[in-house]
Design a protein around this nucleic acid. Structure first.
Length: 308
DNA sequence: ACCCAGGCGACGA
DNA sequence: TCGTCGCATGGG
């Protein structure tokens, strides 16, 4: 279905958007720079935040239509349409993934998830911060990073600091972030990128294995953070970041790996499964579904009783 | 108080 | 090459 774009006095109305939920997209662990506004209107939800050095306030009506506040048609076409991945047919992708029963459940649980096309440097910073951390605290550290070293945009929001800014910092300079041992990792990433030793533009067009090993030259970037940067910062859908949640998913639901139907969209499948595992734990806890005895088993004598 | 969080580097076997 | 441990901080 084609999008219908209408210019209003306060922004841009975009109708015909399918398979899109603001809260699912912005709160599923791929992005840490948007926050939900308290809305007087229960029929809409409104978020605001930053991406690529731009501030955006955006609302979604209950019928699915989107309102991009203070956004020109040109800016929508050039930036936000791509950022929200609106040219990708998620209905098609979900229909393929749903050939597998678990993925069918995970996609139905949060059918409005999309993979954002984020700025590579910003995603890299966020996922350096993410290691051995929780999403709530990641948001706070990212916010302090931008407030402390970025440039003010609008409404108290700040851009990400450029690599050059962090490259000139020492660990003590980053103390206000309260990011712990990750400060030295951020600085090394900034220095290698600012000096040109690591070229994000070049990584964007490298074969995956080479891109991955290039990112892992940064002190503090291992396989998982590299995969997150590649998936979210470079839109490499063939990456499947393996964090503690996805390790649970594989241990419990996919001991033999993902099914064949996921092979072209592993990164997207990963996002549905990650969100499902993290926010719907009762669907995943091994103890309840897997180990709970059936009524027959409760009545059956134990092996010890049989042997007695 | 305790365990855990979108891990990683250092170290020893 | 593989397991194990410490790391900063704070949420639940």
């Amino acid at each position: 279905m084609p999008l219908t774009v209408t210019q209003l006095e306060n922004g841009l109305l975009v109708e015909g958007v399918q398979d899109f939920s603001l809260s699912q997209i912005l709160d599923c662990g791929q992005c840490f720079t948007f926050s939900k506004l308290d809305s007087a209107d229960p029929l809409t939800e409104t978020w605001h935040g930053t991406a690529g050095g731009r501030y955006l306030k955006i609302a979604q009506r209950q019928d699915g239509a989107l309102l991009f506040y203070n956004t020109s048609p040109a800016l929508f076409e050039q930036f936000w349409k791509s950022y929200f991945d609106l040219d990708t047919d998620y209905a098609h992708i979900k229909s393929i993934l749903s050939q597998d029963s678990v993925l069918a459940k995970a996609t139905q649980y949060a059918p409005g998830i999309r993979i954002l096309r984020q700025n590579a440097w910003e995603a890299l910073c966020c996922f350096i911060i993410s290691q051995n951390n929780n999403i709530k605290r990641i948001r706070g550290i990212v916010e302090r990073l931008c407030q402390s070293f970025g440039e003010e945009l609008e409404h108290g929001f700040f851009s990400f600091p450029a690599p050059a800014v962090l490259a000139g910092c020492c660990v003590e300079d980053l103390a206000p972030l309260r990011c712990g041992f990750r400060a030295k990792y951020l600085i090394d990433a900034a220095q290698k990128i600012h000096s040109g030793e690591i070229d994000l533009q070049a990584i964007a067009v490298m074969p995956l294995a080479q891109a991955r090993s290039e990112l892992m030259k940064i002190y503090g970037i291992g396989p998982k953070v590299a995969d997150c940067a590649l998936l979210y910062g470079f839109y490499r859908l063939e990456c499947c970041p393996m964090d503690v949640w996805m390790k649970r998913v594989f241990a419990i639901l996919y001991p033999n790996g993902l099914p064949d139907c996921a092979k072209d969209y592993i990164g997207i499948a990963q996002q549905y499964l990650f969100h499902y595992a993290r926010t719907c734990p009762q669907a995943f806890e091994p103890k309840q579904e897997v180990l709970k005895p059936t009524p027959q088993e409760v009545l059956k004598p134990t092996p010890q009783e049989v042997l007695a």
